[in-house]
Each structure stands twice: as structure tokens, then as C-alpha cells.
Amino acid sequence: MLSCPDHGCLLEPEGTVRIGHLLGAPTPARPAPEPVAAVDRLTWEALTIGAVTLPARPVHLGVWLRLLRTLIDEVSISTSRLRVTSARMLDQIWEASGYPPRGGITVWRP
């Protein structure tokens, strides 16, 4: 999760918050982009209730987490491992997102 489902603010790295606190300059809350907040609200629902309510039907927590993992794997794959059409489509997805290809990941690591 990247945001607080209650407040809609992005979560900040612990070190950043700690340094801000020590310097007497608390880290200002940054609102999460709506798509991030929406996925985080669903994930929070799955974690607290054991299922997430999707438009078609409720989905078990384990299935939801597998769906997220699969999505992350699909968008972070190197385009060199894809056919030309799939690579072009993935490039278009990253371009539309406004983020660099693979979210800036240059070397794969778990």
C-alpha cells in the first residue's frame, strides 16, 4: 500500500518522517492520486475483512493479492522479453501513466 485508506495521503518513508520530526519540520501530508487511493482502499478492505468487493463479486484476499502481484509482474517486465506488439502496448501504458518504463526499475530485484 502506498497511501492511508482513511486520510487519502501518501505514506512517507520512515526515515523522512523521523528526520522531519527531529528538525521540528514535520513532513507535510501529500494527497495520494485517486487511482492509488482506490487500489489501497480495496487492499485495506481485503486485509481487514478477508475479501474485496469488486463490481462482479467479492474476491478472497489471497486472490486479490495474486491479482496485484500478477499486474505488477506484467507491467514491470522488460520489453526485450516481449513480442513487438506487446512491447509497444506496454510502452503506451507507461507513457500514459506519466512514469518511466518499468516505474524506473533498471535492474530486476525482488
Rank of each mutant, 00 (worst) to 15 (best):
M1I: 03
M1R: 08
M1A: 12
L2F: 14
S3K: 04
S3Y: 11
C4S: 09
P5G: 11
P5T: 10
D6H: 10
E12T: 09
P13V: 08
T16N: 07
V17T: 07
V17N: 01
G20E: 02
G20V: 01
H21P: 05
L23N: 06
G24M: 06
A25R: 06
A25L: 06
R30V: 03
R30H: 01
R30L: 01
P35R: 07
P35T: 08
P35V: 10
V36K: 06
A37K: 12
A38Y: 13
V39P: 02
R41H: 15
R41E: 15
R41T: 10
L42I: 12
T43G: 08
A46V: 12
A46K: 08
L47R: 15
L47P: 01
I49V: 15
G50V: 07
G50Y: 14
G50T: 05
A51C: 10
A51M: 11
T53I: 04
T53E: 15
L54N: 08
L54W: 01
H60D: 11
H60Y: 04
L61R: 15
L61T: 12
G62T: 15
W64Q: 09
L65E: 07
L68K: 09
R69E: 08
R69V: 07
T70E: 04
E74S: 12
E74T: 13
E74N: 07
I77V: 15
R81H: 13
R81P: 01
R83W: 02
T85E: 13
M89S: 13
L90E: 13
D91N: 14
E95T: 04
E95R: 10
Y99W: 15
P101M: 00
P101N: 00
G103W: 08
G104A: 00
V107N: 02
R109N: 06
